[in-house]
Design a protein around this nucleic acid. Sequence first.
DNA 1: GAACGGCTTCACCACTTCTTCACCAACTCG
DNA 2: CGAGTTGGTGAAGAAGTGGTGAAGCCGTTC
Lengths: 115, 115
Amino acid sequence: MPVSSSQQVLQIANLEIRPHELQVLVGDRRAGLTVREFELFFMLAQRRDSVVQRPEIYTSIWGGTMQRRDRSVDVLVRKVRHKLELVAPEWKYIHTHFGIGYRFSPERTSASGDR
Amino acid sequence: MPVSSSQQVLQIANLEIRPHELQVLVGDRRAGLTVREFELFFMLAQRRDSVVQRPEIYTSIWGGTMQRRDRSVDVLVRKVRHKLELVAPEWKYIHTHFGIGYRFSPERTSASGDR
DNA sequence: GAACGGCTTCACCACTTCTTCACCAACTCG
DNA sequence: CGAGTTGGTGAAGAAGTGGTGAAGCCGTTC
């Protein structure tokens, strides 16, 4: 039977994203994201290289409308970044666009060892 | 006559899994799983290293749709883990992924660093 | 019909994750 | 440069999820 595109495994840069398992892998290492964290990361990854506005991110994950000054998205981004840094220290995936939102674009940083 | 792939004996780590006998062996020791327990274990073992979501496990064993808060899968996992620990105390086979499901990956638990 | 084994359900508890808050750093604009 | 706004971060309480032992149910065996 066919697999919907949202369930297909994504291979981006050094990442393997498995929607069906809610897993993000860097080589043989697991990022260990929670369900919410994965939803955020996957949602951004699907829109690779585009800036996604905060309210849109919020609605996509929590549904409903984001309140002004709600920090839920920021906190979630922080946690995802942290966990990814543990498994891929020399990479940056989520970039901040001040006053707008976030953008997923894998970029290698200037650290030495790649593993 | 030919044997379907799901009936082939699986050799994984220190385990021998015989689908046609519904037996799991560790060396010459039998795990002594019941039919249900074997179904669970075998189903996960066939998907080695992938995270299988709870509702999928449920459907695979009981059929139908898993109710929210249904603990059948958890309890079954508990029993399988227990019986395997009796025959292979220094191994872990079934790993929990919080909020998602379970993953079969044989790992030695004793104090010897490997990664 | 009593004993037994396996399956299901329940309740309690430990642990993980989520949400919110406060404080500080970074950025924008005049 | 200074005021105001936006994002980064750590922490704490709340909420959710899984581990676990045991009781009840059911069919089978003796």
